[in-house]
Design a protein around this nucleic acid. Structure first.
Lengths: 150, 150
DNA sequence: TGATTTAGTTAGCATAGCTAACTATATTCT
DNA sequence: AGAATATAGTTAGCTATGCTAACTAAATCA
């Protein structure tokens, strides 16, 4: 029952930190996921919509890459979002490309869902002391850069 | 574009921290998820298997609850794991219940997959300085307790 | 013993992931 | 210019994963 090194050069210390972080992220999202069902919209659609709302309009291929999903998969996700009026496909100069844009309704729904999740988590943080809270903020701010290196 | 309070009493500061943490967790797992495909086993099966491997044998209902999934869903996930020989259903004293146990093969596969994910993340942490690393560890250790409060 | 509760399964529906194969538009090359 | 190639998306068809409703079987209770 040990972590055996193979082609990795990561130290045992780093592996341990990574393991804790990984496990915590899994359990965190597993809990929050429940709140998403209230939106009546599937997780893949919600996630794709959030890229459009927070990152702005983009093509289907770009969105697929951002979501680490194949184009056919994203094509169907977008069809679902379009059918319910959360996203619009617009033509571009390049006749092959589409520009995907979140509608006002899509933006509203996304914000509501995000608010639910974030509030659930914020309530869980309410019992933290001042020092812990500050440390937690630091961590949250370190992570985005780390993630880009994965 | 503001986070409007509704029935929540969370402060803007907590909401901001929660938002950053939430977003970081999503992006972290989205990246790591890619490595899982190498195992040739789906995410729900992998996650359920990990509960059995790290948490020990349990009933189907308990596993469903741990995974925050309905019993019929877990029933099918377990059928998949059983078909590929990663988990075994065993009878118990209570004739209604089953005891789900990870097989040796299941345990091995899970460890390999986990190792891949954790190594990916550990490599991304390799560029951190000593102080940052220490902070990251502290924070990763704060999270499990927070998660239980969600 | 008969009624109820509990554990799990089966059936049927929707979403979400993939690859392979297709269409349509752009670009490149002669 | 016209043919060949490359690129962007879609369609078709498979598997996996989520749900509810309805069922079976075992345990418990009155």
């Amino acid at each position: 029952m040990t972590l055996v090194k193979q082609k990795s050069e990561a130290s045992p210390e780093l592996l341990e930190i990574a393991d804790k972080l990984h496990s915590a992220a899994i359990h965190l999202l597993r809990r929050l996921r429940v709140r998403d069902r209230e939106s009546g919209i599937g997780p893949a659609q919600l996630s794709a919509l959030s890229v459009l709302v927070f990152g702005g309009p983009r093509s289907l291929g770009e969105l697929a890459e951002a979501e680490q999903v194949r184009p056919p998969t994203m094509s169907r996700i977008v069809s679902g979002l379009e059918r319910t009026g959360l996203v619009k496909r617009e033509a571009t100069e390049d006749g092959r490309r589409v520009r995907l844009v979140a509608t006002a309704k899509g933006t509203k729904i996304l914000w509501e869902g995000r608010k639910r999740r974030v509030e659930s988590l914020a309530n869980a943080l309410a019992s933290l002391g001042e020092a812990e809270r500050r440390r937690l903020r630091e961590l949250a701010e370190m992570l985005p850069e780390i993630v880009t290196k994965i």
